[in-house]
Simulated scan of single mutants.
Amino acid sequence: MLVSVTGGTGFVGSHSVAALVRAGCHVRLLVRDKDAVGRALGPLGVEPDEVEVRVGDVLDPAGVASFVSGADAVLHAASVYSFDARKADAMRRVNLQGTENVLGAARRADVERTVYVSTVAAMWPANGRTIDVNSPVGRPRETYMATKAAAEEVARRHQTEGAPVVITYPPALLGPFDPHTGDQAARLRDTLRGLMPIWPLGGFPVGDVRDTAALHASVLTRPLEGENRFFGPGRYLTTRQYLDAVRQATGRRLPAMFMPARPMLPMGRMADILQRFWPWHIPAEYGAVYTTVHATAVAAGAPTHGIEARPVDRTMADTVRWLQASGQISRRRAGTAALV
C-alpha cells in the first residue's frame, strides 16, 4: 500500500510515518528540505532509505498533483501550528490553501482514501459543553484556529460531495521526538524553566502524539465501518491538572498563580503585538489564553477507531525525558523524570 504523506517531517507527521512503516506501508513524503527527513524519522527508528522522498511544497498545485498520483491513500498532515503572531501569514497560506491543493489533487487522482489532519480547535468556540463528530465548524477569533476552521470547511465539503475524505481531530499533543519543538513542547519546556509563573484558568484536551499516529495508521489501513471522522485519543485537563501532571512527572514544586482567563486576553493581545518586533519568543500568547477560554471537552464515546489514550503521567514523563535528552532542559529541571 502506497501512502503519500505531507508534513512527514513535523511532529504529528513523523510519528504517523513511523506508524505507517511499522504497519507495512510504503510511504512517499513531500518535503521542502530533504535533509529534514533523517532528522525527523531517524529518532523514531525509520531510516531515510525506507521512504520515498519528493521535494516540493503543498502550495504548488502541479507538484502536489504529481505527488499524489498513483498513491492508494494520502495523509495530509502539513500544517503550521503556532500561536506565534509572526507566523500568521504562513498559517493562512499553508493551512487553508495547502489543504485545498492536496484534497483537490487526491480527489482528481481517484485516491482511495485521504486523511486530513484537522484539530479539535476547528470546532471552538462550541455551542455545547462537549464536541463530537457532528459539531459544527467553529468561528474562532484566533489566527491558527481560524485557518484550521476554514480548512475544516474544505474537508467537510469534500465529504458532503462524496469524496473518500476522512478527518481526524487531534488534541493538544505532547510526546518525545518533536523535530521542531512545537508550541506544546515549548510550553512545557518554558514551564520547567520557570518562565510560566502565571496561568489562565480553564483547560484544554491533551493527548500523546504516538496515540494520534496509531490512529492515522489504523484509519489508513483498516476498514472504517461507515465512519469518516475520528478524534485523536486524549483527555481534557484543566490548567491546574496540567501543571499537577508536570509536578508529578518531575517531583518539582513549580509554584504558579492562576488567574481568570478572560481578563488575560488583552494581555495576550499586547504580547502578540510586541512579538512582531521582539526577536525572542514571548511565552505569553493570545492564542494560548484564548484556548483556555474556549476549549471544549470531547464527548465520551467519540470515535477513536479503537485507539486508547495512554496515561497522561506517562506522556508527560516521556516528554520531559526527551527535553532533557535533547539538551533543552537540564537534569535538575527534569527532576525525577531525568535520564539515569
Rank of each mutant, 00 (worst) to 15 (best):
A245P: 00
A71E: 04
G70F: 06
S4G: 11
P140M: 12
P266Y: 15
D208C: 05
L274C: 15
M257C: 11
V312G: 00
Y144N: 02
A256L: 02
L254V: 03
T9H: 01
M257N: 11
F277R: 14
A126W: 00
P223V: 13
K148C: 03
A77T: 02
T114Q: 04
Y242D: 02
E47H: 14
T168Y: 06
D178H: 05
T239V: 05
T168V: 11
T212W: 06
L201D: 12
E112V: 15
D211H: 10
L254C: 03
G98W: 01
L173V: 07
L215I: 09
V209C: 04
M264Y: 11
A105L: 05
R333T: 14
A186P: 12
N134M: 11
R229N: 04
A90W: 09
T160K: 12
E285N: 09
R310S: 07
E50P: 04
G13V: 03
A65R: 08
H15K: 11
E152N: 08
Y169E: 10
A317R: 06
H26V: 15
A325Y: 10
D110A: 15
V31W: 02
E112S: 15
H15F: 08
R187E: 15
S4T: 08
P171L: 06
E142W: 01
D208S: 06
M145H: 13
G98S: 06
R32C: 10
L237P: 01
M196K: 13
R54N: 08
Y169K: 13
Y286V: 10
Q324P: 07
M145G: 10
S82Q: 07
A213N: 07
E152H: 08
T143V: 09
K148Y: 05
V312Q: 02
V117F: 02
R314H: 13
T292P: 02
G182D: 08
A172F: 03
R129V: 07
P263L: 14
S330F: 07
V58D: 03
P205V: 05
R222F: 14
M267N: 15
R141G: 10
S118H: 05
R276E: 08
A65Y: 10
H158R: 03
D190T: 11
C25E: 07
A90P: 02
G7I: 01
H180S: 09
N134D: 11
R22D: 12
W199P: 00
V37D: 00
Y116A: 06
M91P: 00
Q275G: 08
R107G: 03
H216Q: 09
L96D: 09
G70P: 02
A185Y: 10
D72V: 15
S69D: 13
D72C: 14
S118P: 01
L20R: 10
R276A: 09
Y169D: 10
R108F: 11
D35E: 13
E285P: 04
F177E: 05
R321L: 08
R235M: 05
H180T: 08
T9R: 00
A337Q: 13
A337P: 09
L243I: 02
A78Q: 06
Q275H: 09
A155G: 01
V102T: 01
R108E: 13
E285F: 06
A249K: 00
T130N: 04
V165I: 08
G207M: 00
V27H: 02
N228D: 09
V58C: 05
M259F: 10
R113V: 13
